[in-house]
Amino acid sequence: MIRKAEHVALVVVDMDRSISFYTEMFGYQVRARGENAVREMAFLLHPNQPGFEIELIRDLASGSEYSTQSVVNHLAFTVDNIEEAMAYYGERGIIFTTEEPKRAIDGGRTIFFHGPDQELLQFVEPAGK
């Protein structure tokens, strides 16, 4: 039986750049980092949600590419106020894909942007805010 979502894995090109982005921009912390013969990995956790992690993967050897295994469309982060989040992160260099948030089908509001390897990221302000 499923208890919770464990982590999401993102394939990255430059591990140091991606770790810096998620730690400096969003406050994630590196829980573990290492490599084997075919890939380098890092697990990042956020103090506000220690039960869910972001796994960063960088292929080191050809023929072992995780990037050909599956597709994750985007990773979403909950924010309390989407306009405040847009202003705060916009000042730090985040470029959003639209100028205004979109209304989600559940009444919340969302906006997309990209991470350092063009991974699609999203802020979500839940309905009722």
Rank of each mutant, 00 (worst) to 15 (best):
I2C: 05
E6F: 06
V8T: 09
V8D: 00
V13W: 09
S18H: 08
I19H: 12
F21S: 00
E24W: 03
M25W: 04
F26M: 12
G27F: 13
Y28S: 01
Y28Q: 00
R31N: 01
G34H: 06
A37P: 06
R39Y: 05
E40V: 04
A42Y: 13
P47R: 05
P47I: 13
G51V: 03
I54C: 00
I54R: 00
L56A: 03
R58N: 07
A61K: 15
A61Y: 06
A61F: 08
G63C: 09
G63Q: 08
Q69R: 13
V71S: 02
N73Y: 09
A76K: 01
A76S: 11
F77S: 12
T78W: 09
V79I: 03
D80N: 15
E83V: 03
E84P: 01
A85D: 06
A85H: 07
A85M: 05
Y88S: 06
G90V: 01
E91V: 01
I95T: 12
I95R: 14
I95S: 13
F96H: 11
T97D: 15
T97M: 15
T98H: 07
P101F: 07
R103K: 15
A104C: 10
I105L: 08
T110V: 14
T110E: 13
T110R: 09
I111M: 07
I111A: 08
I111L: 07
H114A: 14
G115S: 13
G115Q: 11
L120G: 02
Q122N: 07
F123V: 02
V124G: 01
P126K: 13
A127S: 15
A127I: 06
G128S: 12
G128V: 10
K129I: 04
K129S: 14
